[in-house]
């Protein structure tokens, strides 16, 4: 009797083990890399600095800077669960192709259908002490020109260029948009939650053998439209000001997931 019991127990254990193993496909347990490629666009074409485009107000605009912070990345699986990329702070710079390719290592294996992130730097990090300001967040390093020294905080989105419509010297226009909500007194918060997914239901399959690349478009002309038409003639220079929230509401929808490579 005792023997039979132990046999049943052993069998059950074996089944259970087998069951667990068979339920997890190999590629799902094996982590792998995933690359997010940010491609800067101007409407239907690739954004070229120095080339003239027409904004929603019908003004000619030529760009020289298009930088933005991507932080707190989350990868979304089909079943609705998400993988939070730890300590993810990236600065995408228009003039630095390497910054436009963000490769995440050790992403848990599986099929991902969407990407979520903050456009900007979260308030906790924005108020953190100097020891946490490394890499993309180093005011004297990568964040140079993307940090307000006089009003401690990051510039989340920086768009600069020239336009005949500008009222500034040299026809320059400047949009330096930031504001994390304030440290001791509440103020504007221009951090935006971004969520993109493939309209074709494409998936990024991460495994040790597959290194998917997710192509995300960032359309600079969206900074000038929906819900508010931004006219360079009316606002040639917007930095830390109440009107910046209108521009932030525009850039909230400048991202789209264009396509995914799985190779």
């Amino acid at each position: 009797m005792k023997k039979i019991l132990s046999f049943v127990f052993a069998l059950t254990t074996l089944f259970a083990m087998f069951g667990i193993t068979s339920c997890d496909k190999d590629d799902e347990v094996t982590p792998g890399p995933l690359t997010l490629h940010f491609e800067n666009r101007a409407g239907n074409s690739k954004l070229n600095f120095g080339q003239a485009y027409t904004n929603a107000a019908g003004e000619s605009v030529t760009f020289s800077t298009f930088n933005y912070y991507v932080s707190n990345l989350k990868l979304k699986k089909a079943d609705g669960t998400t993988y939070e990329v730890p300590n993810s702070y990236f600065l995408v710079k228009g003039d630095t192709p390497a910054s436009q390719e963000i490769t995440l290592q050790n992403v848990p294996g599986g099929d991902y259908v969407g990407v979520e992130f903050l456009l900007g730097v979260d308030s906790l990090k924005s108020a953190s002490d100097i020891s946490q300001r490394t890499g993309a967040l180093d005011p004297a390093g990568d964040a140079q020109g993307m940090y307000w020294m006089w009003n401690s905080g990051y510039i989340f989105v920086k768009v600069e260029g020239t336009s005949p419509a500008s009222t500034e010297a040299g026809n320059l226009f400047f949009y330096h948009i930031g504001g994390f909500g304030g440290y001791s007194s509440p103020t504007i918060n221009n951090i935006k939650n971004i969520s993109v997914a493939s309209s074709m239901n494409e998936k990024a399959s991460v495994s040790k053998d597959s290194h998917p690349e997710v192509h995300i478009y960032a359309d600079v002309l969206e900074v000038f439209k929906t819900p508010n038409v931004l006219s360079v003639a009316e606002h040639s220079n917007v930095m830390f000001a109440p009107f910046s929230t209108s521009i932030a509401n525009n850039y909230a929808d400048m991202f789209s997931l264009d396509h995914i490579h799985n190779d």
Binding site: A127, I130, S152
Partner: peptide
């Protein structure tokens, strides 16, 4: 104007 809130900055 209190724009900086940490001595280190």
């Amino acid at each position: 104007d209190g724009g900086v809130h940490n001595l280190d900055f």
